[in-house]
Design a protein around this nucleic acid. Structure first.
Length: 709
DNA sequence: TTAGGGTTAG
């Protein structure tokens, strides 16, 4: 309070000398603002402004010097009184109209986010015959850029040319930015190419334009050209360049950018640090992200969010959960973006416990649940096996507030749980309610048809795409190939790939390879695998699938060759891992796990389950063991698959009336799949398994996937 | 005596 009183005294002293000169006023206004800003955000700066305003009006100074009025206009708007600014502006300009005051009012509106008012005022300015100048255009263009008002932007561009300011470096940079943000990169490029002089900001604007248009190669090429012309980047340029490298996913270039930032001391800039963290994560080098993150002198919410999302993107959702705790310990408050990232992490993990806890956290912390967060929460529940809650949330959204993503999430939720018919019903309902399906809707519905084996319905949906002008992309073809492959129509699937308008990607060939593995087609399997080895030479999963095909036909020689190739390339099959939740705790099991706390009990149960299954007629499917070993050893290996260990744990611990839910990081093997079916029958238990592709609901000796997965 | 370029989520 004492500090506040002294401020008031200083204010009074300055106020007395205020009439002496305009210079005193400006510095006074600035100092008032700074002091109040720093000391008390809620302090009544407005009262101070009003006092000054009235003194200036009484003395008549305000009409003599336009800059005094301009200061008040800017500050009134800044402190939440745009209307007071506007009436002051109206009074002043009716007295003595000049461009400077108009520019000031435009500046006040633009910088305080009153975009509609900026556009309206500019329009009034034109009608009133006040001439615009090089200061006018950047403000208006900035609004057109941030609101994607391309039509208004073009009108302003015409005004720029008409008034002869098209060679002003500030106006040109603003034009480049406006076109870029309106998605018209080519027009922006044209302005950029025609510039007679370019400074760092012009170059950065154009580099950003390419980066925003997801053309990272062009962005980086331009960055190179800029350096060739002898310009040194600043921190803003580096942020954009880092983002472009992230889009490209080029780990080598990521190191170069990082090096450049270190050499030029840009890393001290918080934004640069954040962008480097995000860049490394997008290039798959999340360890390096963490190193940079740990080295940062200062961190804000974006730093934490970048690191959290880096872990999630790279499949290290558990690390994200740990870091989330650290974030709170450090005193950084999670924001809605943090919530979104963490909900996605829980969805990835398939952890219902963490998901629910997080949802409660979001509610308790009053984090606003907007449409996106709501949809992500629904998605999380569906992916954690709690489709009921996802449905409830969907029903709770007012019909007028359901967007296309809300429908997509639920359609895809039904799909992954094998409820194809329900997904189709929802697909029809959304259209009846006037919501247009987009490319994601079609991915969800096609995949739902595929999971449920609804071939004809799937074909119809694929045909609907053209009718609804949604262009089929590779991912849609992948769903179709998966669906046809499931039905055993391998050659029809292969024909579909050949007819694709764009080159097939890895997911398309991957779907064919999976179908070949299930139906034991070595000929097409080899074609698919060879294409995959060219497209994704480092992806171990495809090697494993092909070796599965050979193993199934006892072709151990080929299996050996693949193992050799994998060894040569340094590829390893990721360790199989299954997770189960019991009474607020999460338990994880690796294959042949020797470290879990229930080791002895679990292994005893596995052995007894194995006998029970045999008695019920289960024959171990030894083709699932890739190693060329004795039959008896193979059977032993099968028993210790991670999902079987988790299952044994679940049978022992989880109350009989509750479903046993297991999440696995890879695809469930054939033997485990039949074992799960038979166990569901013997023990009369409901077992839900989420594997890398979908959910399997086991009960009464059958699975919802109808044995295709 | 006013002006142009930036990072995180899906």
């Amino acid at each position: 309070m004492q500090r506040l009183e002294s401020l008031h005294k200083r204010f009074a002293v300055s106020h007395k000398s205020l009439f002496n000169s305009a210079c005193t006023l400006n510095s006074f206004l600035d100092s008032t603002e700074t002091y109040y800003d720093q000391l008390l955000k809620s302090c009544n700066v407005l009262a101070a402004l009003k006092q000054i305003h009235s003194s200036l009006t009484t003395s008549g100074l305000i009409t003599q010097n336009p800059h005094l009025g301009a200061q008040l206009i800017i500050k009134y708007t800044k402190y939440g009184e745009p209307n007071t600014s506007r009436s002051l502006f109206n009074n002043l300009q009716s007295d003595k109209p000049n461009s400077f005051l108009w520019n000031t009012m435009l500046r006040a509106y633009t910088n305080s986010g009153h975009f509609v008012e900026t556009v309206e005022l500019y329009s009034l300015m034109r009608r009133s015959g006040i001439s615009s100048n090089n200061y006018t255009f950047p403000f208006v263009l900035k609004v057109c850029a941030s609101k994607s008002l391309i039509l208004n932007g073009k009108v302003v561009h015409a005004d720029v040319i008409r008034t002869g300011f098209h060679s002003d470096i500030y106006v040109e940079a603003a034009l480049v930015d406006m076109y870029a943000k309106c998605g018209q990169t080519d027009d922006g490029c044209k302005v950029f190419d025609e510039m007679s002089m370019r400074d760092l900001v012009s170059w950065t604007s154009m580099i950003t334009a390419y980066e925003q248009a997801e053309k990272p190669k062009e962005a980086l090429l331009l960055f190179q050209k800029m350096q060739q012309e002898g310009l040194l980047a600043d921190s803003v340029t580096i942020v954009t360049v880092a983002s472009a490298v992230g889009q490209l996913g080029d780990a080598m270039r990521a190191q170069e950018v990082h090096g450049y930032a270190i050499c030029n001391a840009f890393l001290e800039d918080l934004c640069v640090g954040n962008s480097i963290v995000a860049m490394y994560a997008k290039c798959g080098n999340v360890e390096q992200s963490r190193v940079v993150f740990n080295q940062m002198q200062e961190r804000d919410g974006i730093s934490w969010n970048s690191m959290l999302s880096g872990y999630t993107q790279n499949g290290q959702a558990s690390e994200a959960l740990l870091l989330f705790d650290e974030m709170q310990d450090s005193g950084c408050k999670p924001n809605p973006v943090t919530a979104l990232i963490m909900v996605s992490a829980c969805a990835y993990l398939g952890s219902r416990l963490h998901g629910r806890k997080l949802h409660n956290f979001i509610i308790n912390r009053n984090i606003k649940i907007d449409a996106t967060l709501c949809n992500t929460l629904m998605d999380m529940y569906a992916k954690c096996g709690d489709l009921d809650t996802a449905e409830c949330m969907f029903n709770d959204i007012h019909p007028s507030e359901r967007d296309v993503s809300s429908w997509n999430v639920l359609i895809s939720g039904y799909g992954m749980h094998g409820h194809g018919k329900k997904a189709l019903e929802l697909f029809t309902r959304m259209q009846d309610e006037g919501v247009e399906p987009n490319h994601i809707t079609f991915t969800s519905i096609l995949s739902a048809c595929s999971h449920a084996g609804l071939i004809d319905e799937g074909r119809n949906c694929f045909a609907d795409m053209t009718k609804l002008s949604v262009k089929p992309e590779a991912k849609h073809y992948a769903c179709m190939v998966d669906m046809l492959g499931r039905a055993g129509n391998l050659y029809e699937a292969f024909d579909m790939i050949k007819q694709m308008p764009s080159p097939p990607n890895d997911s398309v060939w991957g779907a064919l390879l999976l179908a070949c593995r299930i139906h034991g087609n070595m000929e097409l399997g080899e074609i698919a695998a060879n294409s995959l080895f060219q497209l994704e030479p480092e992806h171990s999963g495809y090697f494993v699938l092909l070796s599965n095909i050979y193993a199934a036909s006892n072709n151990w020689q080929e299996v050996g060759k693949i193992r050799q190739a994998m060894k040569y390339k340094g590829l390893k099959k990721p360790a199989a891992f299954s997770m189960i939740e019991y009474r607020n705790e999460t338990y994880g099991f690796y294959t042949a796990d020797q470290v879990n706390p229930y080791n002895k009990e679990v292994y005893e149960k596995v052995e007894s389950m194995s006998i029970e299954m045999k008695m019920a007629g289960h024959v171990p499917d030894l083709s699932c063991v890739l190693h060329d070993v004795e039959e008896e050893d193979k059977e032993h290996m099968l028993n210790y698959h991670s999902e079987k260990l988790a299952l044994a744990f679940g049978i022992m611990k989880i109350e009989p009336e509750l479903a046993i839910q297991i999440t696995k990081n890879l695809r469930v093997c054939n033997d485990c799949h039949s074992a799960l079916k038979i166990i569901s029958y013997i023990y009369g238990r409901k077992i839900i398994v989420r594997d890398v592709n979908r959910f399997h609901h086991f009960g009464g000796g059958a699975c919802s996937c109808k044995d295709y997965w």
